[in-house]
Every structure is written in structure tokens, then in C-alpha cells.
């Protein structure tokens, strides 16, 4: 198992998966494994570090990003299937004293 690049999708409605493999670059085919043990093959669009996430489908700016079946933030720009998802395109909605000050 360790020799195949694995990504985990925690819950069925998650629109991101977390990669647990090294040397993932644009075009790398990864095995997306869900909690039921089902697998599917998918290519990522860019380099993604170990433990980081990519989009399982297109996510439009303003849409919710879901992991563990729950909201972990909102897309701050359009995200394509297979693209890297992190702080550059995911906004947290909590602990945002900056937003409250602006209101």
C-alpha cells in the first residue's frame, strides 16, 4: 500500500482529499481511498506536499470546502478538480477578528 500514492477522503460528501505520499507533482495519478475502502484513480493538477489537500471536484469561489463531512472553510477563488487546496484558496470563517473590525 505504501508504494502507491494514497489520498484519503474522510466522508462521502467531502470535496477534498488528503494526500499521504511524497513527490506528488502535476499529473501524478493518486489513489483516492474512502472510508468504505473503495478506491478510484485521479490525477492532480500541481505539486502537493505530504499531508496536504486537493479538490475532488470543481469548487467555485464562495462555496463551502468540506472535510470530515463538515465545513472547514470557504473557497476564496475558483478551484479546479485536482488543484491544491490550502490557505491560498481556502478562507477560514472562524476567529476572524479582522472581518468583525471591518464591519
Amino acid at each position: 500500500m505504501a508504494d502507491r500514492p494514497i489520498a484519503l477522503q474522510a466522508k462521502p460528501n467531502d470535496n477534498v482529499a488528503t494526500i499521504f505520499a511524497d513527490d506528488i507533482t502535476a499529473g501524478t495519478e493518486v489513489v483516492v481511498l474512502n472510508a468504505a475502502g473503495e478506491e478510484r484513480q485521479m490525477a492532480v493538477r500541481e505539486a502537493i506536499p505530504y499531508g496536504h489537500k486537493f479538490a475532488l471536484c470543481d469548487i467555485a469561489a464562495g462555496e463551502q470546502i468540506t472535510k470530515y463531512g463538515e465545513e472547514i472553510g470557504v473557497a476564496s477563488r475558483d478551484i479546479s478538480t485536482g488543484a491544491y487546496v490550502h490557505v491560498h484558496n481556502l478562507d477560514s470563517m472562524r476567529g476572524r477578528g479582522d472581518l468583525e473590525r471591518g464591519e
Partner: peptide, 15 residues
């Protein structure tokens, strides 16, 4: 945490 792939407090909390 961010370098380790956690993007938001929500993601960190859920884990």
C-alpha cells in the same frame, strides 16, 4: 500546523 497541511482552525478542530 499550516506547513503540516491544516488550512483553518475548523479543519484543525475537526481532527
Amino acid at each position: 500546523n499550516i506547513a503540516g497541511g491544516l488550512s483553518s482552525i475548523e479543519e484543525k478542530s475537526l481532527g
